[in-house]
Design a protein around this nucleic acid. Structure first.
Lengths: 201, 201
DNA sequence: GCTGTAAGCGGAATTCGATCCGCTTACAAC
DNA sequence: GTTGTAAGCGGATCGAATTCCGCTTACAGC
């Protein structure tokens, strides 16, 4: 939180005062509308009108709908990433890789449990394999190697990330009615499968 | 192939002659246009025009873009499913569950390798976790149990299915430049992780 | 062959995301 | 304070998916 979690500060520093104001108004309006009506029933038009800005302004700032969504989630996810890098064990450094990975998975799925409806709308976009996942990909990759996983670590990373897919999560939680704990346990079992795996093949 | 692979015949049997004709024309036009221009550059308008039908006709028949896509892929996937149920080992019955699962994964990924561009367009749709995956979900579920997997088999099934996500596949194959064999080996390693896993936790 | 009717049809209308573009304005330099 | 200019603005516009609805027609029953 104190210094740059990803590379995102420059944009805010060189931002014109009126632009910053609009940005805050758009985020506030989007947050309120999404919460009130459900993200999938709110059009970009409506957000723009509620924020008192034109369409051009929204798209200049956020690029597309997914961009707006990620920006909305930004604060919470940055705090989480901060914990991964500098927080207390078991999430932060100090615990064993396996413990950190378990804590990471459970934590991510907890965040996801709140954000899935929002993210599911964004995840059909081009940016979908990106967003916060870029940071998580690296985190997983490092810890899996530390934990001594043999075989194709990068493929393992991808499967573990797929476990955070918002549409999968909604499917399991709501269509299939699973508890969050069941999903978390499943993810940890998947992880342990990779940790225990013989050298592949 | 000889008798109903999924439940889909009734629609074709009660179909009016002109409707059947339109359906064939739409599929032919879509197939040709998708192949020539790339699925993502062809609008439903264009398919309709090329087939010589109105928009209403397309949507009455196929529901939405994803439906059209799945219909287009239907024949190949039904043949594959047929092989799973009644074909030669190792794909069909006769081999050990583990061998059948490996063959299944490799075969699916091979099909996917051709179809991913098409499926990726469809997979942002509501129908996305469905399509051919419904049948594959059951196949995996049965074979994993036969193979004696302990713990949450259903979660294992979902992770294995995520390995067939068309957008993941395109990402790995084209953005990351992996070979098909690497993806297949990765999937098999994932499978073996589940087969070898201790009772979870 | 005639006829009633449900299925099917075409294409206009609607909706929504995204882009475009000419006008406005904050603010740094002087 | 004035000024130049790049950044920012808004809303018209476009393109695509999907829905709607009044007309047409295949075909089962007679």
């Amino acid at each position: 939180m104190q210094d740059l979690p990803i590379a995102e500060r420059p944009a805010e520093l060189t931002e014109r005062a009126d632009a910053a104001d609009n940005r805050r108004r758009i985020l506030a309006a989007a947050s309120e509308l999404f919460a009130r009506c459900g993200a999938e029933h709110v059009s970009m038009q409506e957000v723009a009108r509620a924020a008192g800005v034109g369409m051009g302004t929204m798209y200049r700032r956020f690029g597309d709908r997914a961009g707006l969504t990620f920006a909305l989630l930004g604060a919470r996810h940055q705090a989480f990433q901060e914990q991964l890098l500098r927080g207390q064990p078991p999430l932060g450094p100090g615990a064993s890789p396996r413990e950190r990975l378990h804590a990471f998975g459970r934590g991510c799925l907890e965040l996801l449990d709140d954000d899935a409806p929002l993210l599911a709308v964004a995840s059909s976009q081009p940016s979908s394999l990106e967003g916060p996942n870029v940071a998580y990909r690296m985190h997983l990759s490092v810890l899996l190697r530390e934990a001594g996983v043999r075989g194709d670590v990068e493929y393992a990373v991808e499967t573990l990330l797929m476990g955070f897919d918002p549409r999968l999560h909604l499917h399991l939680r709501h269509e299939r009615g699973w508890s969050l704990a069941r999903v978390q346990d499943g993810w940890c079992a998947l992880l342990d499968g990779w940790l225990a795996a013989p050298p592949a093949r």
